[in-house]
């Protein structure tokens, strides 16, 4: 897991100029994170159990059943002028996020998904999707989806939620 978080932090760092901030955030999150192995393993088991019956919206990124949204929590950016991993106009992708593991319906791989909020616009309020696979209470902040994950963004004003693949779980 440390490796995954490290890769994720590195991937995020490549996209942003806020390196010093991220170094700090990375340290905080990594520091707290000898942690999430178990929840993620459990998600995989839950996905195993659910395999066979796929919901209708599993390939539709405006549906709460979309495969990448297995631990999303908020208003879907795809309903607000954005994409599943793109912010709507005028909103900024947060450099920080919580993470989940979702199984792709056809290739069967487990992807590490980073749930990055889009920040700096007022709340979008459309397509509320609150899924909780692997979601943890506040004391495991990096797995808590109720937080406003706009740390490091220009403002903490939450607009909508995305799901970005950051890697395949090895």
């Amino acid at each position: 897991m440390d490796k995954i978080v490290e890769q994720m932090t590195r991937a995020i760092a490549q996209r942003t100029s806020r390196r010093s901030f991220l170094a700090r955030v990375g340290k905080v999150i990594l520091g707290a994170a000898a942690i999430p192995l178990l929840p993620i393993d459990r998600v995989v088991r839950a996905a195993d159990a659910a395999a066979g019956k796929l919901p209708k919206g599993i390939e539709d990124d405006t549906s709460c059943d979309y495969w990448k949204y297995c631990a999303v929590d908020g208003y879907l950016c795809t309903c607000c002028g954005g994409g599943s991993h793109d912010c709507p106009p005028g909103a900024t992708p947060s450099p920080t996020s919580w993470v989940g593991t979702c199984r792709h319906p056809s290739d069967g791989r487990d992807y590490i998904v980073s749930y990055r909020d889009c920040c700096g616009q007022a709340s979008c309020g459309r397509c509320l999707c609150a899924r909780t696979e692997g979601e943890m209470p506040l004391y495991r902040a990096q797995l808590d989806s109720d937080l406003i994950w706009c740390f490091g963004a220009p403002t903490m004003m939450y607009h909508c939620s995305t799901a970005e693949i950051v890697g395949v779980k090895s």
């Binding site: 520091g31 707290a32 942690i35 506040l138 004391y139 495991r140 902040a141």
Partner: peptide, 20 residues
């Protein structure tokens, strides 16, 4: 309160936070 969150008041001069 590194690694610990929230404030449960447990006395006039004491509070508790829950940790990861």
């Amino acid at each position: 309160t590194p690694g610990c969150v929230q404030a449960f008041p447990s006395g006039n001069r004491q509070f508790d936070s829950i940790c990861a």
